[in-house]
Amino acid sequence: MIRHLQHYLLLTMILGSLGCQTLHQHKNTPVIVQPADVPKELCKATIPEYVIEPPDILTIDALRVLPKQPYALQPLDSISVQINKSNGEPLFNASASIDPAGELPLGPEFGSVKASGKTIGQLRTEIKRLVNETYSEPLVGVDLVQIALLQQIAGEHIVSPDGKVNLGVYGQVRVAGMSIPESKQAIEAHLSTYLDKPQIAVDIFGFNSKFYYVISEGGGLGDQVTRIPFTGNETVLDAISNVEGLSAVSSKQMWVARPGRNMDGGEQVLPVDWQAVSMRGDTRTNYQIMPGDRVFVAEDKLVAFDNHFAKQVAPIERMAGVVLLVTQAAQRLVYFEQSGTNGGNSGF
């Protein structure tokens, strides 16, 4: 009788520790009536014009990058030189870069000439003077092919946390919050301080600033949040596939929580009929994902209850295990003491 009473008290303590957590349900998700034209599979919307944000990566191509005149040549600038005799016979025709020492090589016959710090006109005069030592009335043509600083404009540029791209010696330009055409205009306006009517092309190389999230309840063991890059064509089905499907603790209940308010000022919560989407190919709730969306997957209630029950019972099990161990040790100690006493009293 006493043993049964102890078991009853232990069960009462366990159920009492669970409180009102048993088989708790989510509060009813606020279902907002959405317009019929919510973008979904087979009826997708065009994504608004992309807005640049950190840490996107831009690709800049220099279409027309010419220095303002008069331009003083610098090391690593590329120069095209044509040298002909007075009768038009070619003597030298090649493009070369000014070396770090400021010299422009003109081949073994003419050696090199000091070019750094000179304008194109001054360099042409200097080359003509050099060639004139060997050939009378030479014809000399000099053109600037490419400036060395062009390499700091063209290429891939990451948008830094302050919203700017770094153009080397030309400084930094703020592009965060701009569209691609707006960023092109801003960069060209900045470069016009140093260059003559610059023209560039801007594109997005790395779309790194737009994400959506798949949040899966963990059945009382913590939620799992997965951040997925936004590409502009995903649906709920794509989002679930990107996290390798539903886990063992997930239920079929899910919805899309969209940042911002709807036309009525309420929350944008889009319930998803997962069985209809996955089993019947129904597209009505297979919504198109937008940047910032949260695809929330609710937990399985039985799994959540089992995990919660296990967490509540575990301390009691450990305490009961300790009590049982101490009780068994005490019983053995009493048994050995009684055995020793009985053995000492026995004899002939």
Rank of each mutant, 00 (worst) to 15 (best):
Q6E: 13
H7Y: 12
Y8A: 15
L9E: 07
T12K: 13
L18N: 01
T22Y: 15
Q25W: 09
Q25S: 15
H26G: 02
H26V: 06
K27R: 15
K27D: 15
K27E: 15
Q34Y: 10
A36I: 09
V38Q: 03
V38E: 08
A45S: 14
T46A: 09
T46L: 08
Y50I: 03
E53Y: 00
P55W: 00
P55H: 00
D56T: 02
L58W: 00
I60A: 06
I60M: 04
L66M: 04
Q69P: 03
Q74A: 11
Q74I: 06
S78W: 10
I79E: 02
S80W: 04
N84T: 14
G88A: 04
F92W: 07
F92V: 03
A94W: 04
A96G: 05
L106A: 08
E109C: 00
F110V: 00
S116K: 15
T119K: 07
I120F: 03
G121N: 07
T125L: 02
E126W: 04
I127G: 07
I127D: 00
I127V: 09
K128W: 00
L130T: 11
N132V: 09
S136P: 05
E137P: 01
V140K: 03
V145I: 01
Q146H: 09
I147T: 03
Q151T: 04
A154R: 09
G155L: 05
H157C: 00
P161V: 10
V165H: 02
N166H: 02
N166G: 01
V169Y: 01
Y170R: 06
Q172V: 00
S179G: 08
I180Y: 01
I180F: 05
E182L: 05
S183K: 03
K184V: 08
A186V: 02
I187T: 06
T193H: 09
L195C: 02
D196Q: 11
D196L: 10
K197P: 07
F207R: 07
N208P: 10
N208H: 13
K210M: 14
F211A: 10
Y213G: 06
V214I: 13
S216R: 15
E217A: 11
E217R: 02
G219Q: 06
G220W: 03
L221K: 14
F230R: 06
F230M: 04
T231K: 08
G232L: 05
G232F: 00
N233T: 07
T235S: 06
V236F: 02
D238Y: 05
V243T: 05
L246K: 04
L246H: 01
S250Q: 04
K252Q: 11
M254S: 04
A257G: 10
P259N: 09
R261Y: 12
M263H: 05
G265Y: 12
E267P: 03
E267F: 14
Q268P: 01
Q268L: 12
L270E: 06
L270Q: 05
V272W: 04
D273P: 07
W274P: 11
V277L: 08
T283Y: 02
R284V: 11
N286L: 13
I289L: 11
M290T: 11
P291S: 12
G292T: 08
D293W: 13
R294T: 08
F305G: 10
F309C: 11
F309E: 05
Q312C: 12
A314K: 10
I316R: 12
R318H: 15
R318G: 14
T327C: 09
Q331H: 00
Q331F: 01
L333H: 13
V334C: 06
Y335W: 12
G344N: 15
N345M: 11
G347Q: 11
F348I: 14
F348C: 12
